[in-house]
């Protein structure tokens, strides 16, 4: 039986460099897995493959039993829309929309908007008092909390987070990690989180360490 996320012999080669050199990885559904490693080790490349944002030059990626190579562009877009939530280091919020509208935009591209549901999601991340504030009127931590609400509003099966706290101070980092932990415990979606910060990686149930495009260590924490 295949795990929820299965990567088999994934290579990703660019003209001048190889970002991944034969990665094999299996992550069960509902697990929080951190991927750590130095810069250039292939963490983000692997995350992009898992999110269907990039494809391997060799090897296969299966998510929920689906071989991502077999999906057409439209099918891939639908797959991402329905199954995957993304958080990046930058919030990428639309600057002229309010927090509420930014979350509703994600609903719009998924299916249709529902403002009360978006409001509820923002309240869950502690931003009930910031519904109509634009990103420029929010702190970095608050912006990242909006991105968490935006990523989870469509009930994805996987949350892919690429250095989600890279721009935050320790206090806000802790707030975000506590928030993710609470939401993960409530909804048990799978989290794959890329970071180079040991404080962030230790919140996971499993840590995968990469170096030079390969997995060199894979340890469960509990």
């Amino acid at each position: 039986m295949m795990d929820f996320i299965t990567v088999r012999g994934a290579h990703r080669e660019y003209q001048t460099a190889s970002a991944l050199r034969g990665v094999d990885l299996e992550i069960a559904g509902g697990v929080w897995c951190s991927i750590v490693g130095p810069s250039g080790s292939g963490k983000s490349t692997l995350l992009n493959l898992l999110g269907g944002l990039d494809s391997p030059t060799k090897g296969q990626v299966f998510i929920d039993g689906v071989d991502l190579r077999t999906l057409s562009e439209n099918e891939m877009a639908r797959f991402r829309r329905e199954k995957i939530g993304f958080i990046f280091q930058q919030s990428y919020l639309i600057p002229y929309l309010s927090s509420l509208d930014n979350v509703m935009l994600s609903q719009y591209f998924h299916s249709m908007t529902d403002s009360s549901e978006a409001e509820e999601a923002l309240k869950r991340v502690g931003l009930g008092h910031r519904l109509h504030h634009r990103p420029s009127e929010l702190s970095g931590g608050e912006q990242q909390r909006v991105t968490v609400a935006r990523a989870l509003i469509n009930s994805p099966k996987i949350l892919l987070a690429d250095e989600p706290t890279g721009n935050l101070d320790r206090e806000n980092t802790k707030l975000i990690m506590e928030l993710l932990k609470r939401l993960h415990e409530e909804e048990r979606f799978t989290i794959v989180l890329v970071t180079h910060d040991p404080f962030v990686s230790k919140w996971a149930e499993r840590i995968v360490t990469m170096e030079d495009g390969r997995i060199i260590k894979d340890e469960p924490l509990y």
């Binding site: 998924h110 299916s111 009930s155």
Partner: peptide, 14 residues
């Protein structure tokens, strides 16, 4: 079960 599923259903009706 979820809000997303509810919206998906309604969206398909629309």
């Amino acid at each position: 079960a979820t809000g997303a599923e509810r919206r998906m259903f309604k969206s398909s009706v629309v």
